[in-house]
Amino acid sequence: MTALGFLHPGHLAEDDYPRIEQLLGSDIRVELSHTGPGGDADSAARLAEGVEELRLSGAETVVWASARGSFAHGWEGAQEQVRTLARLAGMPASATSFAFVHAAREIGVRRIAVGTTYPDDVAALLADFLRAGGLEVTGARSPGAVTAAEAGGWGEEEVLALARAADTADAEAVLLPDSALRTAAHLGALEKALSKPVLTASQVTVWEALRLADRRVNAPLLGRLFTREPLVQV
C-alpha cells in the first residue's frame, strides 16, 4: 500500500482525488488535508497544520495541490516553498506547479497551450513559471472573469470548450492549471477531442505524488500521462 498526501486549498474539486484513487487501484491510498481558502492558505503555518494531519495518516509523500499558490511565488520562491514543506513533513514534497513541468517532460513535450480561468496578470505569472521550467507557451486563453466557485461548477462541456479555445496548432499538449476544475472524469474525452495530451491540475498532482514515491501506475482513463513508460534519461 502506498499512501499519497495532498494539501488541498479549500474544497473545490476535491472529489477528483477519490475518483483518481479508484482508477489507480487498490494499493494506492489518497489522503487529503485542507488548508482552507484565503490569502494565507499557502503560508508556512497553514501548510504545517495540514502536514501534521497527513503525517498521522501514514502518507509517504506530500504535494501542495495548488498551482496558483505555488507559481505565484516565482520559480525560486516556489522551490523554497517546497523545501519548507519537505522539512515540515519529513518526507518528499512538491507542488502542482512543478508537477506540470515534470509531467510535460515525462511525456516528451515542450510546446504547450494553456487554458486558464485566471485573470490575465495571474496567467502571465504562470507562463513565466512554465518558461523558467524550460517549456514554451504557445498561447494562453481565458474565458474572462470566472470565479473559482464558478469554475468548480463546470462540467465536461465547459472544460472541453476551455481546452479547445486554448489549443494551438503548434502546441504538443494542452495544460489546464486551475485546481478548482473537475477534470478527472473528462480526460479521455479531452484527449480524444484535441488529439493530443491534456494535463490537468488534479491529474498531474497525483502523478507527481506517485513519482515522489517511485511508483508507476498504468491508468489509461487518466490520460496519456498515465500510460507512458518512463523516459530514458541520457
Rank of each mutant, 00 (worst) to 15 (best):
R68K: 15
G39A: 13
G50V: 00
A213C: 14
R55Q: 14
E14T: 04
L135M: 12
H186M: 04
V51M: 10
A201D: 10
S179V: 04
L47K: 11
L212S: 07
T147L: 09
A161I: 02
D167G: 01
A169M: 02
A59Q: 11
S195H: 03
Y118A: 13
Q79R: 15
D42L: 06
P143I: 01
L88R: 05
L125W: 08
A48N: 08
R46E: 07
E150Y: 02
G223V: 01
L7K: 08
R216H: 13
V63D: 12
R87T: 04
K192I: 00
L7H: 07
L32P: 14
L23Q: 15
A78Q: 08
A201L: 03
K192Q: 07
A173Y: 03
H186S: 08
T116M: 06
V30R: 13
L24T: 08
W154H: 07
A3G: 11
R224I: 00
A166Q: 03
A180W: 03
E14P: 00
A124M: 03
L210P: 06
A72C: 10
L187V: 03
A184F: 03
M91R: 14
E80H: 12
E157S: 13
I20D: 11
T227H: 00
H11E: 13
Q203Y: 01
I112H: 07
T205D: 07
V109C: 02
G58N: 15
H8L: 11
G77R: 14
A148T: 06
L194S: 00
L12A: 14
V62K: 12
A123R: 04
Y118V: 05
H34R: 15
G108Y: 06
P220R: 12
E172P: 02
T138K: 06
D27R: 14
Q79W: 05
D178H: 06
S94N: 14
V30K: 11
A151N: 14
G134V: 00
A151L: 09
L210Y: 07
L4N: 08
A219W: 11
E156K: 05
L176N: 07
G139N: 02
D16A: 08
E136K: 06
Y17C: 15
P92G: 11
F6A: 10
Q203H: 00
R29W: 08
L88K: 04
V204R: 10
R141N: 09
L231R: 14
E208V: 00
A173E: 06
